[in-house]
């Protein structure tokens, strides 16, 4: 099978890999590059566990071909904490007890980050809308919604 070169930035650092054509970004990140924070919950685009941010847009890495990401800026939950300090969203998920098994958590956090990056002060409806592509089987969603709203408030207070 022909291999193609692909180069992108992952959480600020340069990555270059030869991958089989047709490899999903999810596989490339997990199996080749070793960032296992995006999770494969369905590989069909229906659970959101594999969510990452590509050039500022929320994307499902299981439906994205790695070769289409040449030159892209890719962000995952693994790169969110800076200098060992948790991002306000991560902090809020902890404080709100918004994780149980945690399998949906990295995807949820990415979906929430994409929202807060464009809408720093979202309404509850906007949070719900932003999370609606992500499945959680443990929490009943409410703690996750609360965590995102809390993180948004904490962020706007810091900015003020």
């Amino acid at each position: 099978m022909a291999k193609v070169p692909v180069q992108f930035t992952l959480n600020g650092s340069e990555k270059a890999e030869f991958i089989e054509s047709g490899t999903t970004l999810l596989h490339a990140l997990r199996d080749k590059i070793g960032d296992t924070s995006p999770k494969g919950g369905c590989h069909q685009g229906t659970c959101g566990a594999c969510s990452v941010i590509i050039d500022g847009e929320l994307r499902l890495s299981c439906l994205t071909l790695a070769e289409t990401c040449d030159g892209a800026d890719i962000r995952t939950t693994a790169g969110l904490a800076e200098g060992g300090v948790l991002h306000p969203l991560q902090r809020a998920f902890l404080d709100a007890f918004a994780t149980q098994c945690g399998f949906c958590t990295p995807g949820m956090i990415m979906a929430a980050k994409a929202l807060l990056d464009r809408t720093p002060n979202p309404s509850r409806e906007e949070v719900v809308e932003a999370l609606s592509g992500n499945i959680c089987r443990c929490t009943g969603y409410e703690p996750i919604i609360q965590a995102v709203l809390t993180a948004a408030r904490a962020d706007s207070q810091n900015a003020a």
């Binding site: 997990r30 199996d31 070793g34 960032d35 296992t36 924070s37 995006p38 999770k39 494969g40 995952t76 939950t77 693994a78 969110l80 904490a81 948790l86 969203l89 991560q90 998920f93 902890l94 007890f97 994780t99 945690g102 399998f103 958590t105 990295p106 956090i109």
Partner: peptide, 21 residues
């Protein structure tokens, strides 16, 4: 008490079986 496993969950560091590549 805060859950000792949650920091791993929110940073994507918790190792699930499929993370053993």
């Amino acid at each position: 008490r805060p859950r000792l496993d949650s920091p791993g969950h929110v940073t994507g560091k918790t190792a699930y079986f499929a993370d053993r590549i």
